[in-house]
Design a protein around this nucleic acid. Sequence first.
DNA 1: TAACTTTATAAAGTTATATTATAAAGTATA
DNA 2: TATACTTTATAATATAACTTTATAAAGTTA
Lengths: 399, 399
Amino acid sequence: MQLRKKTGNNQLLKEMNKARILELIRQNTALSRADIAELTGLSATAAGTITSCLLTDEYIYESGSGESKGGRRPVMLQLKPQVFYSVGVDIEIGLIRLVLMDVTGQIYCNKEIKTCKNASYIEISEKIVVCVKEILASREIQLNKVLGLGISVPGVIDVKTGRVVLAPNLEWEDAEIISVIKEQISIPVYIENEAMASAIYEHWLGVCMNIDNFVCINITSGIGAGIFTNGKPFKGNDGSAGEIGHIVVDENGPKCGCGNYGCLETLASIEYMEQTAIKMIKQGAATMLNNIEYLEELSINDIISAAQKGDDFSKNILLQSTRFIAIAVSNIVNNPSTIVLGKEFTKYSDLVMSHFIEIVMKKSLKYPTKRLQILSSTEGLQSSAIGAAIIPLKKLFGR
Amino acid sequence: MQLRKKTGNNQLLKEMNKARILELIRQNTALSRADIAELTGLSATAAGTITSCLLTDEYIYESGSGESKGGRRPVMLQLKPQVFYSVGVDIEIGLIRLVLMDVTGQIYCNKEIKTCKNASYIEISEKIVVCVKEILASREIQLNKVLGLGISVPGVIDVKTGRVVLAPNLEWEDAEIISVIKEQISIPVYIENEAMASAIYEHWLGVCMNIDNFVCINITSGIGAGIFTNGKPFKGNDGSAGEIGHIVVDENGPKCGCGNYGCLETLASIEYMEQTAIKMIKQGAATMLNNIEYLEELSINDIISAAQKGDDFSKNILLQSTRFIAIAVSNIVNNPSTIVLGKEFTKYSDLVMSHFIEIVMKKSLKYPTKRLQILSSTEGLQSSAIGAAIIPLKKLFGR
DNA sequence: TAACTTTATAAAGTTATATTATAAAGTATA
DNA sequence: TATACTTTATAATATAACTTTATAAAGTTA
């Protein structure tokens, strides 16, 4: 599948303008044709024409007339609910969450399905397909009204192919979910890391709607981060940019599945908190949690409610986890694939480079998929001046 | 100055296609019209038409015929040198570097001007204008052939206005260089942080030409980083994303101008190395540098050449600086303006949030312009599922 | 030498937006 | 109440950019 950039023709132009108008309406809830012309810089006619298309396609509808500004009253346009839908799926350990949403962001259905904890990606995929088909059927939604199926997975996603490279908590490796699902249902399928999916939510509808640089950290069975830079998801070259679960926060900490000691996930995840509580209670810790029936089934919810009732033991468990996450947050690495050292350094790089690489490799993240390249600039002192000279050229080259 | 996004009309379309074709030629050195049609997806005719425009405007020229692939031989097109130029300026302490470059990236002139170390931005601006005019006059380059003037400054640049918010090493604050220069010479003026300018160079012509996520660290009088994410400069919300000079690498280190102790810049910058050497020599350290005439004028160059000749004292100074930089590099913070905590955490955020904020604030960067916002998600467990559902919508809304 | 390829351009057609003019529906004021 | 003026929306016409189809120019291959 060759993914060539779209040709710059009139079709593209119209698509761009359509998308831009839809986004403006989304952000402003309701706009008139005149508003659209004003905001886009398009002529009133063009705004009107594109609007007509969107109306006949039922992406928008006329929601009534607005206030007059001293002349004819405008007809307001809004996103049309309950016409075009999207399905979201979050795959967790032993659980699949499904959501049916329309283009307005309204949610019409939440569903949770329990699964085997060690289910293969093929089994999970099949469950998803069945459930999606059910939801759509029960609401009589045609497939061509479903813009797509987005899937959130707690693991590293290959940026180019959409393959799940590694999802340790699900015990998956190289899982080609997309193709399995596409064989069974003909809608577009997208896949995304779980923390990044949350970040997308925050940026679209949540607390980061007007914030373009942020990190969304999800504390759940594992710990992951979704990073946005310049208003766009930042995944790094290999899709592992947000994998903060294996930042070492305590070098003397317990051994992690990844081979290191004291990874954030081993010291702060929900699972760790539960296990710690169970272990300490067995050892006779003083806590309200003592009277729990089946200690092995102790869940984070028990810990939370005990803490809320003033149980110091439970409170401390939460606080300790929080402390480690805070340490990690203050060290979230930008996770570049490459580091270049420049200016005066280039003069003596041969003397110290190996020393430098050694320390960085030892100190920085060690997520398995990561490969860090450390280079010395070949330009040296002039690099900034040349860079400055490039800036005026960028526009000319569309960059 | 209202900066409205460009209207999506035919003009924009042609501009986009022109830019894209120029960029393709730049990256491939030479292309035929047929290659361009193939690579862009444009029709052969359109590729031909746009090519003609670029030829008459002298952005490109016909460089001869290429190899036949079993038919008529193609006419190759290349960027035309020595027609359109750009000027780059790097402002350092006591020094201005100027570079004249054409669209091909060829450099025709390097100039260095010494300045007063405490010169105001107005004085510097005037020097720049005089020098730029001189260079252009001496080569008989018309102003309309100069695409712009890019300026690199060791300081924080306001992303929106281009104002120099703070350049401690130059002792500037709120310096509106752009407007001062524009009054005296009528070409587009751009301004950029020094490390970021280097990063732009590396991405355009240097060692990062095909790398989209990297950090470029400049070790000079200060220490700064230029960060690229997704192939674009990442400046953070306030333009201070690359300000790593004030990461604390040794809490027991010397006091920094910023108020903290043990900032990277106080332990690893070129200036610090020079000062350390001077101090230790005065205290009687054993080194080849002992026979330097004016100890106060000892420069990094002396240290480097001594180290190269095997002077352990000098070598150690370089190694120590390097070590601190390595520590900082392994901790380069993504510098988001906002951190959102989600999923299970939202259940108990009220119990621990203040603790969390306290630690992060204490541990993370303390650059003066930075304001970190820490939020708890309002969505909780469903955020990933909803986020996943949003993905299929993004294209529709041009996002 | 004939058939086929590749490259480049010309002529005619399509599409999307711009311009200009006009209609529709409101406000402000004498 | 009538008139002038505004704002909003659309119709008719013009313009710009790309596509399609056809053709010419300049090669290669059997």
